[in-house]
């Protein structure tokens, strides 16, 4: 396993170096180890000699594709390494015109599951792993197919809880929140030039820090990702207070599947969930034609 990852890392460096030799190459986005060697962080290689800092291992949690909207309009080709969840995000970004495919060099990396640094087991985000169908890669390090993983997902079942229990659960979770915006910053899908939480007129959100304000923040944040969340759980990983943000996005994904048979963002070229409708949509909660 370790040898296989090492081999892939060598190959990744070779491909990145060859790409950066091209005269039109701007940068190659991948991962490097943090100084304490315990985690990885995103790394932008700009010169071929820098590729020795690039790594590939089971700790490569960050999503390199999430930096692409910030590079929109820049001159030159951008290389980007993507694992399965990143590839889903990449497809959504291309569809949302956040980056042009012709300016990208996409290196697909087959991932056999990431490891949660806290538990040492396969990360729970990998439990719903699904590779995009027919995505166009420039190069790959192997077949880009959904790996066969059995992962226990440690999550309280919100649907099974009573209303009171859910309230108590979210009160407890949201009390931890310090409104640092880490979840928003890390998300591939939060690329609006002016975020609703930063607007001053109208001032939608405050930083009062009471429960109502946090409910507004997290409900809106999750809703803005409805049908776009690729389920990478980066929000929960980035949260310094350990708030289970992934549960909100996950519940929206589950409902989208249940109500509209929506496959999930970035997997196929299915139309975006809230950009389309069907006259056959369920009308379960509404008065309808009584």
């Amino acid at each position: 396993m370790r040898d296989q990852l090492k081999g892939m890392q060598t190959r990744l460096r070779e491909i990145a170096a060859a790409f950066l030799e091209r005269p039109d190459a701007l940068c190659f986005i991948g991962w490097e180890m943090t100084p304490d060697e315990k985690e990885t962080r995103p790394f932008f290689a700009r010169k071929p000699r820098q590729v020795k800092r690039l790594v590939w291992n089971e700790m490569c949690h960050p999503n390199p594709a999430s930096y692409l909207p910030g590079l929109r309009g820049s001159e030159g080709m951008i290389g980007v390494a993507v694992k399965g969840c990143d590839a889903r995000a990449l497809r959504e970004l291309i569809r949302a015109n956040q980056i042009e495919r012709k300016n990208l060099f996409v290196l697909g990396i087959p991932c056999a599951g990431l490891v949660d640094p806290n538990t040492g087991a396969i990360a729970s985000r990998c439990s719903e792993c699904q590779y995009p169908v027919d995505l166009d890669y420039d190069e790959t390090l192997g077949p880009m197919e959904t790996p066969d993983l059995t992962v226990e997902r440690s999550a309280p079942d919100l649907d099974a809880m009573s209303l009171q229990q859910r309230r108590a659960f979210w009160k407890q979770e949201l009390d931890k929140c310090i409104r640092c915006d880490a979840c928003r910053k890390i998300c591939y899908g939060c690329y609006c030039p002016e975020c609703i939480f930063e607007m001053s007129d109208p001032k939608w959100a405050t930083n009062r820090g009471d429960l109502a304000d946090k409910i507004f923040y997290h409900a809106v944040r999750a809703y803005h990702l409805a049908g776009r969340c690729v389920g990478c759980d980066e929000c929960a990983r980035a949260c310094p207070m350990g708030v289970r943000l992934d549960l909100l996005n996950r519940s929206l994904r589950d409902h989208a599947k249940e109500m509209f048979s929506f496959d999930g963002a970035g997997i196929t070229d299915e139309k975006p969930l809230l950009r389309t409708f069907s006259t056959e949509d369920p009308d379960p909660f509404f008065g309808g034609d009584k």
């Binding site: 859910r166 659960f169 979210w170 409910i215 997290h218 409900a219 409805a226 519940s251 929206l252 409902h255």
Partner: peptide, 8 residues
Amino acid sequence: KNLLETMG
């Protein structure tokens, strides 16, 4: 509606 229900 589903989101609001999930949040209590």
